[in-house]
Design a protein around this nucleic acid. Sequence first.
DNA 1: CGAGGCCTTGACCCAGCTCAAATAAGGTGG
DNA 2: CCACCTTATTTGAGCTGGGTCAAGGCCTCG
Lengths: 243, 243
Amino acid sequence: MTVHEISIRKPLPAFLRSYPLFAGIKDDVIASFGNYAVAKFERKGTILFLPDTPNDKVYIVRSGWVKLFRETLGGEEAIVDVLTNGNFFGEIGLAGTELMPYGAEVAEDAEIISIPRFLVADEVMRNSVFGLAVLQSLTRQKLQRDLEIEHRTVQSAPQRIGCFLLKLCRENQKGSITLHLPYDKSVMAARLGMQPETFSRALTRLREEVDLTIQGATIQIPDITRLSEFSCAACSSKFPCRD
Amino acid sequence: MTVHEISIRKPLPAFLRSYPLFAGIKDDVIASFGNYAVAKFERKGTILFLPDTPNDKVYIVRSGWVKLFRETLGGEEAIVDVLTNGNFFGEIGLAGTELMPYGAEVAEDAEIISIPRFLVADEVMRNSVFGLAVLQSLTRQKLQRDLEIEHRTVQSAPQRIGCFLLKLCRENQKGSITLHLPYDKSVMAARLGMQPETFSRALTRLREEVDLTIQGATIQIPDITRLSEFSCAACSSKFPCRD
DNA sequence: CGAGGCCTTGACCCAGCTCAAATAAGGTGG
DNA sequence: CCACCTTATTTGAGCTGGGTCAAGGCCTCG
């Protein structure tokens, strides 16, 4: 919860440009974004905004991880999503919503760019290429949510974890891979819609099933294909089921 | 599966205009949409397109119900969504996706408008007001999905059904209400992420819990407030948890 | 070295799933 | 309008994945 913000200004334009979302934006606009946008390093635990709170910024994660959450009436926390490099959030503000339906907390030290909402809205209006890009991104994200819903009903806990690990592998080749769980297991559990205890046990089952080697947050996957065969067995979409 | 299509042409403009999505569109564009758009009556069971099939149209439901579905590898059908008046689908095509990630089947006799994708894309590019409207709609839909995910993990089966009934009530007043389940219970079950058997039993439990009167597809709700208190007890958002 | 935060284990429980069957609800042809 | 067939819904019985509660481990940091 300790706030240890370092307010810095970096050459955002290059960063923004590097993401497909901003591919069609003219230089002067990027520059304008760059003038109003703020990049900050934020420490794990920092709360960017609370649920049901007014907010007028759109955020982009430059590095690290940010989790979006809601509070159940019962006081429990439901995790909506956990974001990283190049992902954005707070765009619900573009729909004119005053209060954020979810809160945002830094799950792992992160660098976060915030842009006043009106700037983005203006640019959407002015630059149709950008508008279409955002629109397409949202379309895909919605689809991603559909998949997520399906996963939660169709896959077992170990399969869901396996599917998650596969996403972490990105476009990597077949064969053996070593990877680090990027954030707390309890957060992963919530992200995958299960209890921490279940996560722990499910990971054990998955290990037995596909011969993982697990040391704390480090996981060795001897055979990706085998993992995907196990995890995606129940799913409706072919293997790389990411966007 | 019998196809009993009646291809008709109705004054679409008025219809389109009546939905907020098209509020900002200029008359000539509406007219152009009207020229290329086709409205058809389709019978229950008609399949509009299959999953993983190329498609170049965006659809709007004018009346009736359409269900979007995927096929699990196991051959089971997972329902993505069930749409009605004024809802649109197929917009994923705007993201350049060639193959539809889901299929569409008429769940209850419906009138459906289809518009060539390029027309919509053009209009998004040309008319920023329209573009923003679509963008906002998608944003809200994505949020809706988030809620859906939360519901499925936090609510019990009876609560989920209750929540669904509340959505059917729309902006109706408090007190007693009678309503008709708009489509097959088995489809509702799938839509809510449960088995038909579970649905049946859960509905019975809900009846006992909040004194519903059930006759086939007709349901009498004596006290909406009571229903919402029961259903939304576990949810993170206040009562009218729809868009 | 002790405190607190994570994570893992153990024991037990229950909502929802599965398989199987009985009943309603429509629809059709005579 | 009736008998018959098909599809939708309900019920019964039993099983189990995942949740809950309660203890330990473990590791980090002061």
